[in-house]
Design a binder for these strands. Structure first.
Length: 464
RNA sequence: GGCGGCAUAGCCAAGUGGUAAGGCAGAGGACUGCAAAUCCUUUAUCCCCAGUUCAAAUCUGGGUGCCGCCUCCA
C-alpha cells in the first residue's frame, strides 16, 4: 500500500514497524463545542484507513485523544458557568453521538489530556534533563533551537519561520518559535501541581505523551488536518524525538480542508457548520459519502447542493443492497447455472479494483467508483429466480466493499404484521384494478415511513 | 518574503505517457394502471502558450486564476 507521507513529500510503500501490526494516532477534537464538518473529515477518512488495514488483516491499534484543557475550554466553561471538567464531559458525550451517526468507529483508546497530567509532567522533566526545555517564571518552554530537526515536517527552517512570525510579546521565551510545554496558572484557571508550580499543560505535549504511552516511542501512522502540520505536529516531533532520540511517526498523513465558498472553513472565521446542525437536515451517512467522494488530500467545497447529490448517490447504494436482500428471501438453493457462474466469476474483479484504488494512498473516490460499477453490474444481472448462491455472493461483495468505507450501516429490518397486512390488502386492490384504494394505502404507508415500489418482480418496500 | 496545493462535462470527481472511471442533474427510450426503482442510449478538443515524444489531461518551461500554511484552528 502506498501512502503520501508529509514528512518525505512522496508516496511511499507502507511498511509497518512491527509486521502485521499498525499503530496509529490521530489528533482528536478539543471538546468545547460540537465538532464541525471540517473536524469530521479527518475522523472519517482515517477511520476508513483504519478499516481498510483491519480488512487487510493487520492488528490495528488506533488512538485518538480528546483535548479537554486549553484556553478555549476555559473560556467556554466560564461563559457557561460550569467547570472545565463538566464542559469536557458534556462534549465528549456529544462527540460520540455525532461520530456514531457518521459511522466512525470508536478508537481503541480515547485518552483525555487531564487524565495524563502525571505522564505529561514526567515527559517535560525528561525534556528538561536533556536540555531541550527551560523554565521561565512559572512556564516551561521547549527550546526549539536545541532540536536539530525542527521544521522538517513543514519544510521550513527556523529562520524562515521567524521571519514570517508575528512579533511575540512574550519576552520570557528565548526564541519566538519556542512553545509552551507547561503554562503557569493564571487567576481563575484550573491547575495541577507540578515541579514548576501550579499550572496546566500546553497543547502540543499531550499528543506526544499519550501517543508514546499507548503506542510506543515510534508509531506507524500519525494523522490529522493539514493545518496541524505547523505548528502542532512539528512540535510533537520536536518533543517526542527530543525525548526518545528515535523517529516519532513513520508516516504522517494529512487531509485537506473543507471550504465554504472556496474559503477555508474554520472556527476562527465563523463560517462553519457543526455536524449536529447538518444532522437535522441530512442523513449523516450522506455526509460520510460526500467526504469520501474526493481524495482525502484535496480540498473540498461544502454546500447543500453537494450534500443532496451525495444523498441521492447513497440511495442508489441502498436500493441495490435492499433489492438483493428482498430477492435473497425467495432465492432457490440450487446449483448455479453456467450463466450464473459467469456472473459469479466477475465479482472478484471488483474487489481487486477496489483494493487497488485503496492501496493508492487511500483513493476513496476511485474506490467508490468501483462500487458504483459493481452496483450497475448487479442491477443488470440479478433477476428473480436466480440461485441463492449468486444473490448471496453479490450481496456479500457489495456489503464487504461498502463496509470498508463505513457505508450502508442501516439495516433493512423487517415489517410488523400490521404493515404486512396493508401491503397484502393493496396487492389485492391492485389485482382488482381498484387504483384509488391501492394508491390510498400507498400514501398511508408513506405517512408511516414505508415507501412501496411495484417492480416487475413484485412489490418492494423501503423505509423513508 | 519563505513553504505548499489546486485548475478535467451543467454540478461533484477519478485518472499522472497510449485518443477521458464513477456519482448527481438533464434529454430520449424500455418496463409500468400511476409513481418509484432498474436497464439502454446521450452530454468533455482535460485553464492558456511553448517544448519533449511515434504518442501528453498526464512530463518540462512560461503564463493566468484560485486556495492554504508560516498565528488558536481538522
Amino acid at each position: 500500500m502506498k501512502l503520501y507521507n508529509t514528512l518525505t513529500k512522496r508516496k511511499e510503500e507502507f511498511v509497518p514497524l512491527h509486521p502485521g501490526e499498525v499503530r496509529m494516532y490521530s489528533c482528536g477534537p478539543t471538546v468545547y463545542n460540537y465538532f464541525h464538518i471540517g473536524n469530521a473529515r479527518p475522523f472519517i477518512v482515517f477511520d476508513v484507513f483504519r478499516r481498510y488495514m483491519e480488512y487487510k488483516g493487520y492488528k490495528v491499534t488506533f488512538v485518538q485523544n480528546f483535548t479537554d484543557i486549553d484556553d478555549k475550554m476555559i473560556q467556554r466553561a466560564n461563559e457557561e458557568g460550569i467547570t472545565v471538567k463538566e464542559l469536557g464531559e458534556r462534549f465528549i458525550a456529544e462527540y460520540f453521538i455525532d461520530a456514531d451517526k457518521l459511522g466512525i468507529k470508536r478508537a481503541d483508546v480515547h485518552p483525555k489530556a487531564t487524565d495524563h497530567i502525571d505522564d505529561i509532567i514526567e515527559f517535560i522533566k525528561k525534556l528538561m534533563d536533556k536540555g531541550l526545555a527551560y523554565q521561565a517564571g512559572n512556564d516551561v518552554y521547549y527550546n526549539t533551537m536545541a532540536f536539530e530537526g525542527y521544521g522538517k515536517l513543514s519544510g521550513q527552517n527556523l529562520e524562515d519561520l521567524e521571519l514570517g512570525a508575528r512579533i511575540d510579546i512574550n519576552e520570557s521565551k528565548k526564541n519566538p518559535m519556542d512553545f509552551a510545554l507547561w503554562k503557569g496558572q493564571k487567576p481563575g484557571e484550573p491547575a495541577w501541581d507540578s515541579p514548576w508550580g501550579k499550572g496546566r499543560p500546553g497543547w502540543h505535549i499531550e499528543c506526544s505523551v499519550m501517543a508514546t504511552k499507548y503506542l510506543g516511542e515510534t508509531i506507524d501512522v500519525h494523522s490529522g488536518g493539514q493545518d496541524l502540520i505547523f505548528p502542532h505536529h512539528e512540535n510533537e516531533i520536536a518533543q517526542s524525538e527530543g525525548a526518545s532520540g528515535k523517529p516519532f511517526a513513520r508516516y504522517w498523513l494529512h487531509n485537506g480542508y473543507i471550504n465554504v465558498d472556496n474559503q477555508k472553513m474554520s472556527k476562527s472565521l465563523g463560517n462553519f457548520f457543526t455536524v449536529r446542525d447538518i444532522s437535522r437536515e441530512f442523513d449523516l451517512e450522506a455526509v460520510r459519502l460526500f467526504m469520501l467522494s474526493s481524495h482525502y488530500r484535496n480540498p473540498i467545497n461544502f454546500s447543500r447542493e453537494l450534500l443532496e447529490q451525495a444523498q441521492s448517490a447513497l440511495e442508489r447504494l441502498y436500493n441495490a443492497r435492499n433489492n438483493l436482500e428482498h430477492l435473497l428471501k425467495d432465492a432457490p438453493e440450487r446449483p448455479s447455472t453456467d450463466e450464473e457462474k459467469q456472473f459469479l466469476d466477475k465479482l472478484p474483479g471488483y474487489t481487486d479494483s477496489f483494493e487497488k484504488a485503496m492501496e493508492d494512498d487511500i483513493n476513496t473516490a476511485d474506490a467508490l467508483g468501483v462500487i458504483f460499477e459493481l452496483v450497475r453490474e448487479i442491477n443488470s444481472n440479478i433477476k428473480p429466480g436466480q440461485s441463492a448462491e449468486v444473490i448471496r455472493a453479490a450481496l456479500d461483495t457489495l456489503k464487504k466493499l461498502t463496509g470498508i468505507l463505513g457505508l450502508l450501516n442501516k439495516q433493512m429490518g423487517s415489517l410488523d404484521d400490521e404493515i404486512e397486512a396493508l401491503i397484502e390488502k393493496r396487492q389485492q386492490a391492485r389485482k382488482e384494478k381498484n387504483w384509488a384504494l391501492a394508491d390510498k394505502i400507498r400514501d398511508d404507508l408513506k405517512e408511516m415511513g414505508i415507501i412501496l415500489e411495484d417492480t416487475p418482480q413484485g412489490v418492494r418496500w423501503k423505509r423513508l
